[in-house]
Design a binder for these strands. Sequence first.
DNA 1: TTTTGAGTTGTTCGA
DNA 2: GTCGAACAACTCAAA
Length: 479
Amino acid sequence: MNSPILYWFRRDLRLSDLPGLCAAAAHGPVIPCYIHDTPDGDYASPGGASAWWLHHNLSALEAALEQQGSRLIIRSGPVRKILPALVEETGATAVHCSRSYDPGAAELEAQLHDTLAQLGVAFKRFPGSLLFEPEAVSTQAGTPFRVFTPFWRQCRQQWEPAQPLAAPAELPHPDAWPEGMPLDALQLLPTPVNWAQGWENLWQPGEAGAQKALDTFMHNALADYPEHRDIPGVDGTSRLSPHLHFGALSPRQLAHVVLQHSHLQPEQQASADKFLAELGWREFSHHLLFHFSGLPHESFNERFEGFPWQGSPAALKSWQQGQTGYPLVDAGMRELWHTGYMHNRVRMVVGSFLCKHLLLPWQAGQRWFWDTLVDADLANNACSWQWVAGCGADAAPYFRVFNPTLQGRKFDPEGDYIRRWVPELAALPSKHIHEPHAAPENVLAKASVKLGQNYPYPIVEHRAAREAALTAYQSLGSK
DNA sequence: TTTTGAGTTGTTCGA
DNA sequence: GTCGAACAACTCAAA
């Protein structure tokens, strides 16, 4: 039996724990392929930072496949045309892939199933990028959950932690390889300005890098996760989100390691549960988007469609550039710009600031994050922005307006994080670094801070902005 | 069937 | 300085 099976890589850019790849390899020759499809439509293609990651993740996958004597065939164009064409060229008898849950995916997969069936070719989807299939979780009334806690409780009740699969021992290669294009031709890297300079020292996209990040987290950070995850000046989070997004690590692999660890070290049970709940939020977001495909565009709570947003383009620009005059907000926005990442605690603060202090629509924040985050993910991005704006599922209540100064004092007490990302404030004493505009003249002078010159005055005044936000939110009325 | 209580991440105010 | 209450409306499951 020499007819090959096509393995279509999507956002599962790894070799281990891929049931579809294992099934293909057990059967005969495998042709691994990746199709770069850039359909029209909002959020149909990765943003800039995310594209950088994709390039390097594909490059790592290519290398891993070559080490196995295999290849990655890269093509570009509409999947609905390219995939059937590749099948005909290679005489493949089946196509395997991982299921996608994004809007439009079910339709595409159904269409591929039919098109390929007409060629006598089987199209098989395998689960793997989520812990729970959306169809498997629902309320007693049979509706999707809208509240996280009962959602996650039910997930954990039906959880049967399975051993992740190893990568196939070998990938039998076909008699002949179809043509592919070089990875560089996809033009995923930044041009003409390489704003990602030095990122290769910060991140290692790909399966090996994901394993390394996982080991580091398990070894250094899991035990203190519940407390340290909130402190942006400490490496207390896993930083695994981009790996999960592109599938260099499967959630099953991650959960398995964490569960095993907490089994061996029962005193870390609470830390493990806390971390797993974050994976739960990832599941929750993906399930929500699966059931409510409009989430990236329309407020989950329709009442918000009439919200009196009023922020200015200038305010948006100040926010994007980290020039709001609120040090924690500015530190976060600059971390994002310089690294493609932002600490989770700070994401909440800058999100609240955009929606509530600046009264800019959450979609504007979502758009910026889409372009600048290496872990930009349609489901997580939409759900988290809606959460912080107060219009999402199980969202933050309208009156929860983060005070950026207090958040700084509480979670970055010594100003470590602020000093790292807002160097013009680095010489200020911790007591004043969270509120430079309230610091005495001589303190500012001594630290060479010239407000309005090398660091901005606050673009809005906290108390007034908070009042305006509460008024705007109350204007939605109770009915 | 109806009722009840709890629900990721906060802040402010007044006692 | 600390502490509890108030700041909506709605979802979900258990009583």
